[in-house]
């Protein structure tokens, strides 16, 4: 444990250096998260004549720009690395190190955070300039909790990817399972359309699933659509999901590593 803690600063530095070295890859990642802008254009067209529910054009603007910021900072890509390394057998090298592979994956993800924050600055600036600070929550507690909710969102993304990635120990490639996860995420997280606008039964389903806590919960909180009490309750649910997934990741990885047989490498 102490050894792991001592290694973390170095691993983070390595992660940062990696993210700078593979700038182009990073840029591709950033480009692939532009869907909220497309949806913003679409929903603005829908709301041009009259607001939809609680959402007018300005609210849609705030919603999708906040969604873009959350998505930029809460994204993880560990699933591709895990799938690739298990299939190619190169995971063996990672296992030789005296550190749990998930810790080193997490560090390389967190190491890229400075660049991601940098990329989201223009979005924040654009949101504040065009919409004004009035579109966002003024509750100091909620504003202070916002980073925590984004961290929670990132943890859910990362841990879910780790669990799905661990399936690759049993079925060699878990990318189609992940595709399924991504499809459900697209609808149930509020990434495409705010959950409120869904038919009632779909909204209720979405509120129970973990996807919402990866995106629409922080977004709705920061644009001031969730009252304080509800936000605190949802924060508790979010971190419960984090704890459950952390446990699941630990169990699946322990079981998976026992099965792991490196080919080639």
């Amino acid at each position: 444990m102490r050894r792991t803690l001592r290694a973390i600063p170095t691993l983070l530095r390595v992660g940062f250096a990696e993210s700078v070295a593979y700038r182009a890859e990073m840029f591709v990642w950033l480009l692939s998260t532009t869907m909220p802008l497309v949806m913003l254009a679409l929903m603005s067209a829908v709301a041009r004549e009259a607001p939809v529910g609680r959402f007018g054009q300005a609210e849609f603007g705030a919603y999708y720009l906040a969604a873009l910021v959350v998505r930029l900072n809460a994204g993880a890509w560990v699933i591709w690395e895990v799938n690739f390394e298990i299939r190619q057998g190169t995971l063996a090298f990672r296992l030789l190190r005296p550190i749990h592979p998930l810790v080193s994956y997490a560090c390389s993800n967190v190491g890229a955070m400075p660049l991601r924050l940098l990329a989201s600055l223009p979005v924040v600036a654009a949101a504040l300039l065009t919409l004004g600070p009035g579109r966002f929550t003024h509750d100091p507690l909620l504003l202070a909790l916002f980073p925590l909710t984004v961290v929670g969102a990132w943890l859910i993304t990362f841990l879910a990817m780790a669990v799905i990635g661990a399936l690759a120990f049993a079925i060699d490639s878990s990318s189609s399972v992940f595709e399924l996860w991504l499809g459900l995420y697209g609808v149930f997280s509020g990434y495409l359309i705010p959950l409120e606008l869904f038919p009632r039964w779909l909204e209720v389903t979405a509120k129970l699933l973990p996807f919402r806590f990866m995106l629409s919960f922080p977004v709705e909180m920061v644009i001031g659509m969730t009252p304080r009490a509800a936000a605190l309750r949802e924060l508790a649910i979010q971190w419960t999901y984090v704890a459950v997934l952390a446990l699941a990741a630990r169990i699946t990885w322990r079981a998976g590593l026992r099965r792991f047989a490196a080919f080639g490498g």
Binding site: Y22, A24, E25, L31, S32, T34, M35
Partner: peptide, 17 residues
Amino acid sequence: VVKVDNLSFLLLSIFDA
């Protein structure tokens, strides 16, 4: 740019529009 494993993902996500 050699390390571009995610290009297909990019193509797909843009195509979604």
